[in-house]
Design a protein around this nucleic acid. Structure first.
Lengths: 98, 98
DNA sequence: CATACTAGTTTGCAGCACAAACTAGTTTGT
DNA sequence: ACAAACTAGTTTGTGCTGCAAACTAGTATG
């Protein structure tokens, strides 16, 4: 197996999913943001977005902080250190592959 | 939704799967090759490779030609025109996204 | 005070990737 | 000649996972 194929086969599957890739791109560009921002930017539905975020939390890539804006519940999202590192590796993998 | 996210969300899911990406890279580099070449290069198992190839045939991206090398059955694989086009679009999409 | 809205989460299902088991035929060993 | 092992794949079964619909809990509105 050559370098290029190796790079492809080692791509992190948790990140590789397009829905989650979008989340990484958005969270990678800011310190933090809220659920609704991601919802609007990605044009996913809530259920979908919610489960992708849970998956990313589970993987240790995203921190989910539940708070309130006034009386309204608000969910703040943030990439963890591990999340940023993993995303960097993913992008390097892509570059090596294409 | 911005350009970058749009590019991600429009990535062709049939191609996006790493196992199939490897097949595209290999078939993209040659006119045709056989099953065993793909098997060794990708380091997949046969079942896996076989079903990915069926998926790609179904999508119209790969042609599967069954022949013999002497008395031994041999399967020749080849990207279709549609397959090459789709792979080009996929790579452009990736570039637009990263 | 009930109806509608907000901000999500949970549930149910369909599709998919994966490996183990199977198939069909060929070669090798005795 | 006949069985055992090998070759070149395909089919089957299972568990995961992406997705949307349905649900929950609370808030604002008519």
């Amino acid at each position: 197996m050559n370098e290029q194929l190796r790079a492809i086969s080692e791509l992190d599957r948790v990140i590789h999913e397009p829905g989650r890739l979008m989340i990484f791109v958005l969270l990678g560009a800011v310190e933090e943001c809220d659920f609704l921002y991601l919802l609007h930017e990605t044009e996913m539905n809530k259920g979908n977005l919610s489960s992708h975020l849970s998956r990313l939390e589970e993987a240790g890539y995203v921190e989910i902080e539940k708070t309130y804006r006034g009386k309204v519940p608000q969910t703040i999202l943030r990439l963890t250190r591990a999340g940023r590192t993993a995303f960097d590796r993913y992008r390097k993998g892509l570059k090596a592959a294409f």
